[in-house]
């Protein structure tokens, strides 16, 4: 169970993901292709593992997390959800904090998670790590 179970609407039916199962999700494939590692997943092992742990922490699948950042307008077009993106930011910060990462180490890890969202079209920026 994650530390934010009581704060977020995680799915009770959520089953922990693994590095093998997560790559089957559309948003993960999109991320890997965009980042240029679509042909060599092994080069992304560390980042994939991080997203697996993030998903397991917040108890949402990667596709669900992306969907939470998107809202559909009345005319059917899609827009980035400010509410969803803000919630995602909270997810990311809680996740990194739970791993004991602070300072620049925390910023770097937060940005690694943000990369997954960025490559799925969710515009977001984290802080820069400056000594």
């Amino acid at each position: 169970m994650s530390q934010i179970d009581e704060d977020v609407d995680g799915q009770d039916s959520f089953e922990d993901l693994s590095s093998e199962s997560i790559v089957k999700f559309e948003s993960v494939a999109k991320w890997l292709n965009s980042v240029g590692a679509g042909k060599d997943i092994s080069a992304m092992d560390e980042q994939i593992k991080l997203i697996v742990e993030f998903c397991n922490f917040v108890r949402f699948t990667p596709d669900e997390l992306i969907l939470k950042c998107i809202r559909t307008l009345k005319d059917g077009t899609r827009a980035i959800s400010t509410k969803g993106r803000n919630q995602t930011e909270e997810f990311i910060k809680s996740f990194v904090t739970s791993r004991g990462k602070t300072g620049n180490e925390g910023i770097i890890e937060e940005n690694k998670v943000r990369g997954f969202f960025v490559h799925n079209g969710i515009f977001m920026q984290g802080r820069a790590a400056i000594l």
Binding site: T82, R85, N86, E89, F123, M124, Q125, G126, R127, A128, I130
Partner: peptide, 12 residues
Amino acid sequence: LRNPTTTASLDL
């Protein structure tokens, strides 16, 4: 001044 779309730039 930070928001989800202007954050890194403010640090740099």
